[in-house]
Design a protein around this nucleic acid. Structure first.
Ligand SMILES: [Zn+2]
Ligand SMILES: [Zn+2]
Ligand SMILES: [Zn+2]
Ligand SMILES: [Zn+2]
Lengths: 141, 141
DNA sequence: ACCACATATGAGACCCAGTCTCATATAGCA
DNA sequence: TGCTATATGAGACTGGGTCTCATATGTGGT
């Protein structure tokens, strides 16, 4: 899992440093979305002396490479989620935090219709879906 | 324009105070999206002695009443946009900042399809569209 | 018109996410 | 092994937003 990340970075003319390996491992161990503070805390707990700035720089790097994205949770928090470098949208489980990805599933017709009605020329869009993953649906409310 | 806001607040068991009237006027004068800092600056410029906290409290109040929403601009900035209290989405002009609203235009079928494929039970979604408004399309790049 | 009291306000401390700077360390390559 | 571009850590700094608390004010009842 974290090998994928490192392999990708390797092929992008980027150095494979100690802190980056460790952060990649921490991220893949989380599996779903997380906040920057979560990652910083993870690193602190393991007493790897990784600085705040390095964490943010690494998140930026992954984002540039297209394997990480920002998501604004319904409660307003700002989270990061690892993902594939193709255009897609996120399904975020509001209970356990797991994230699935979906391709467009026809949203292009929605944006086209919105453009037609409004006269806007649409350049980009952002769609996020929030709910309960299959596992969490089985848990009693 | 700002009368609408005040009228609405009046009907919601909320006090019609001086600062609220003034802020309502400033907001309606802006017309599109704005940041909290913009509003604070507007108020400061007029030397109404309105405190930061009051501005944020008023924005929260309007949000609770459903006539204001948060939008995260593509550049990551956090903006507020006045709008109708029904479910809808925003078309934000990235050049002049004006905002249009669109109803769902068929996004329900998109979310339904995503739910079917993923097994998620979808509770809410967020869709934002960014582009150029009709006016700004006429401006040379 | 007045009062009483719940509610709203302003000032400023505070918190948290994210950025910047700069001196030091290190990966990758000759 | 050594050189150099690149990455790092510490900590200052910024900007958005919240909290506290003493004071002010809208509003409903008289
Ligand atoms: Zn779940
Ligand atoms: Zn899409
Ligand atoms: Zn809206
Ligand atoms: Zn425009």
């Amino acid at each position: 899992m974290s090998e994928q990340l490192l392999e990708l970075l390797n092929g992008a003319g980027v150095r494979l440093t100690g802190p980056r390996r460790e952060l990649a491992a921490l991220i893949s161990k989380r599996g779903g979305h997380f906040t920057a503070a979560d990652l910083v805390a993870d690193a602190a707990k393991r007493r790897l002396g990784i600085g705040r700035a390095t964490v943010f720089r690494f998140l930026d790097l992954l984002t540039e490479q297209g394997v990480m994205e920002h998501v604004d949770l319904p409660d307003g928090r700002h989270a990061y989620v690892p993902c594939e470098p193709t255009h897609h949208h996120h399904l975020v489980c509001t209970r356990c935090g797991s994230v699935s990805e979906v391709e467009d599933c026809g949203i292009d017709s929605v944006t086209a219709e919105a453009a037609r009605r409004s006269g806007f020329e649409i350049q980009s869009h952002r769609l996020e879906l929030f709910g309960r993953c299959p596992k969490c649906q089985k848990v009693k409310r």
